[in-house]
């Protein structure tokens, strides 16, 4: 029996924080690729500490719904899941290349496949592009558009910037958008000065965050100048200093994220059948208008 456990941050304050986790779990559940799909949280229930004891299967894949390697994926989750003998060297990662480690979770005295975070998987690049398609309503968006991928800078976590750059570079290589830039919240190039970094009249701004919350709904919209105060809301697109900014909100809410979760599990050995194709198909942006 094959089980998927999606672990995410969750929130004590924001009721919407768990929504993307639940949504992607539902998408994956509908594919039938796993006998069960469970969710566990740091700030909600079931907690990381107790989620594994709710799991019935014997082939267990744990996928962190986090954007980068760092404190949560390297310390908190392995500790709270009680992965016996965990050491970050198990992943042998350069900050982007964590794939999986198979360890016994002491909580259930059973092996689990502990996967790298979704945010650094190569398939995440496609989700960022898909997010741009979603927010513009154009499955062919690219020509005449710039794309900004934004996240925390190195101040919070040096791997956070690595993940942003990695995906921005990969998208740039595709020559789909006129310009692609990595921008940061707490270091240069800062997202506050977005119009200075783009020549294009239209720029899609995709924050590399899992859930919408304080950063994506308050911080970034105000910093970029989409609104004076987040409570006013903003239009998509909003023109700021001559640049039309298409603000996408957290990339983690994009339905195609379910694909990255599946990719992580597949990389760790999960048997998925046609689930990957199914998810790519069912989460597509409709063509035309």
């Amino acid at each position: 029996m094959q089980s998927l456990v999606i672990v995410a941050h969750g929130s004590h304050l924001n009721p919407g924080s768990s929504a993307p986790t639940y949504d992607h779990a539902d998408t994956i559940r509908a594919t039938g690729a796993f006998d069960e799909v469970k969710t566990g949280f740091w700030k909600e229930e079931p907690h990381f500490r107790e989620v594994l004891r709710t799991v019935e299967g014997d082939e267990i894949y744990v996928v962190p719904l986090f954007v980068s390697e760092g404190y949560f994926t390297e310390q908190v989750i392995p500790r709270e899941l009680r992965l016996d003998g965990w050491d970050v060297s198990e992943w042998d990662s350069d900050g982007l290349s964590a794939d999986q480690a198979t360890l016994v979770a002491e909580d259930i005295d059973h092996e689990v496949h502990y996967c790298g975070p979704v945010g650094t998987h190569r398939a995440m690049t496609d989700v960022i592009v898909r997010r741009a398609e979603s927010v513009t309503g154009d499955p062919d968006v690219g020509e005449g558009f710039g794309l900004a991928v934004v996240g925390h800078g190195t101040e919070r976590n040096e791997n956070s910037a690595k993940a942003i750059e990695y995906h921005a570079d990969r998208i740039a290589e595709r020559d789909r958008f006129d310009e692609v830039k990595a921008l940061y919240m707490d270091e240069d190039p800062e997202v506050d000065d977005l119009p200075d970094y783009f020549e294009s009249d239209d720029v899609v701004l995709v924050p590399l965050f899992i859930a919408d919350g304080y950063h994506t709904q308050e911080d970034i919209p105000e910093d970029v100048g989409l609104c004076e105060d987040h409570t006013e809301g903003y239009d998509v697109p909003t023109e700021v200093d001559g640049t039309r900014i298409w603000y996408a909100g957290a990339v983690g809410t994009e339905p195609l994220m379910a694909d990255v979760i599946l990719e992580r599990a597949a990389d760790a050995g999960a048997d998925l059948g046609t689930a990957l194709d199914d998810v790519r198909e069912t989460t597509r942006v409709a063509t035309g208008d």
Binding site: H12, P15, S18, E44, E45
Partner: peptide, 19 residues
Amino acid sequence: LDARELVKLDEKGRYRPLK
């Protein structure tokens, strides 16, 4: 699984961080 939505808010519409 619909219970996920039923447990999210209390009867006054406030978020329940502790289920």
